[in-house]
Write a protein that binds this DNA or RNA. Structure first.
Length: 292
DNA sequence: CACCAGGCAAGCC
DNA sequence: GGCTTGCATGGT
């Protein structure tokens, strides 16, 4: 990969295994919006980025060399070699197809606090509405950023939320999930759950700590481990993953998440999280079309 | 109007 | 322990 400065823009050349649609539409991130073909604008933590693919290059706006090297490079995980991962996963027949469909997926390194709240809000909900609720949350508690005449909002940090009450969360229209979010914010701000400790814990312990939060079960905990703590062996099992696994590995017979989890661990091991993302993206394309 | 959406907790046995 | 049910809200 090569990074060039071109006026107030940055240009990335020779980037391998990176597609904006695949990366932003595979369900890991709710904060980037497609504003035109091959162009996304979004906010991660407190940074806004305008990123577009132009030919073989990526053009980045509203950022600096310094910010790229200290933040976005890590966020997009350009240090991870997907060539090896894809080669390994493609030994499995199903994954070979899934990898082919989502060849440009990269698992982002997202902010832990943001990931915890976002995936608590995601339960039994559809992606469009999850995005809306998170945006409402950021609009209410985050900082405004104006870019090209449009308003964007940062995701608030825990300290921005000290002293909020449950009633303030009601206008997010998050339904019963608002009290889970409220309790998570309190647990973090009261020091019952340390975000810093979570980052350094072994995965099994981190998971146990996350499961202690109300509204965090097996699936949400695995999403937080995978997207917020870069534990790439985590394999979140939601309705889509269950459907696609039943379809391809169990001849459309009903199973349960425990069986699938064991099977994923045996088949994908340390690469479970990557496998899960390829499969999720594949499932959404494959099964959604099949429905009609 | 039923049913579902990146599930989970509480209440049963 | 495993299995069932209620849960807020919005979309089809």
């Amino acid at each position: 990969m090569e990074l060039l400065k071109d006026g107030d823009r940055l240009v990335l050349r020779h980037v391998k295994d990176f597609d904006l649609d695949h990366t932003f539409l595979c369900g890991q991130c709710f904060r980037f919006e497609k504003c035109e073909e091959n162009r996304y604008i979004g906010v991660a933590s407190s940074h806004l980025l305008d990123i577009a693919r132009v030919g073989d290059n990526f053009v980045l706006q509203h950022t600096t060399l310094d910010e790229f090297q200290n933040f976005w490079s890590h966020y997009f995980a350009f240090d991870i070699d997907y060539g090896k991962i894809k080669h390994e996963l493609s030994k499995d027949e199903v994954l070979r197809n899934a990898v082919h469909h989502g060849q440009g997926i990269r698992i982002l390194r997202q902010d832990l606090f943001e990931t915890i709240l976002s995936f608590i809000l995601s339960q039994s909900n559809n992606i469009t509405r999850i995005r809306g609720i998170i945006l409402a949350f950021c609009r209410k508690f985050g900082k405004r950023i104006v870019y090209e005449g449009k308003e964007y909002y940062t995701f608030p940090r825990p300290e921005d939320l000290v002293g909020i009450c449950l009633e303030e969360l009601a206008d997010l229209k998050a339904g019963y999930r608002d009290k889970y979010v409220y309790h998570a914010i309190c647990a973090i701000n009261e020091g019952k759950l340390s975000l810093d400790d979570l980052c350094h814990m072994p995965t099994v312990e981190a998971k146990k700590a996350l499961l202690g939060l109300s509204g965090v079960g097996e699936k949400v905990a695995n999403c937080i481990l995978l997207f917020g703590l870069s534990r790439f062996d985590a394999f979140p099992i939601d309705v889509w993953i269950q459907r696609i696994m039943e379809h391809f590995y169990y001849e459309d017979q009903k199973t349960n998440p425990a069986v699938i989890a064991q099977m994923a661990e045996n088949s994908f091991g340390d690469l479970g999280g990557f496998a899960q993302q390829y499969l999720f993206f594949y499932a959404r394309e494959h099964l959604q079309k099949q429905k009609k």
